[in-house]
């Protein structure tokens, strides 16, 4: 992760909004009826992995093309989210996550996941 440019919070909002739109469209593309929507979007140099949970919350991870651990990491992120965010009485649903334990555990996960 070192050396990568950080997105501003506005860029995050744009990315999330665009992705939500793409996801909504892709979930209706299948000729076989309802679909779960896009799960992986690949570009020449990057890969976007999307985890759609049963409640509609999406977790998105941007990785390099060669990365194979994205699915596993997203599952763990979901687990941490359920533990540290949803069980925290001071989190307001639909609002940005300002939970210390979540940040700590995500940093620990991504740090260990990439072997940095």
């Amino acid at each position: 992760m070192d050396g990568l440019a950080q997105l501003t919070s506005n860029e995050y909002l744009v990315l999330a909004g665009t992705l939500h739109g793409i996801h909504a469209i892709t979930s209706r593309l299948s000729p076989m009826g309802a679909s779960s929507g896009a799960q992986v979007i690949e570009g020449e140099t990057f890969k976007i992995t999307i985890l759609l949970t049963a409640t509609g919350t999406k977790f998105v991870l941007l990785t390099s093309l060669t990365d194979t651990s994205a699915d596993g990491i997203l599952q763990k992120v979901y687990e941490i989210y359920a533990d540290a965010v949803m069980k925290n009485p001071f989190h307001t649903p639909e609002m940005p996550i300002r939970t210390e334990a979540f940040d700590t555990r995500i940093t620990a996960l991504i740090g260990s996941g990439l072997g940095v």
Partner: peptide, 14 residues
Amino acid sequence: RHISVPRDMSQLSC
């Protein structure tokens, strides 16, 4: 175990 008290309430102990 799953509670993170916000900074402005750091005095609070659940």
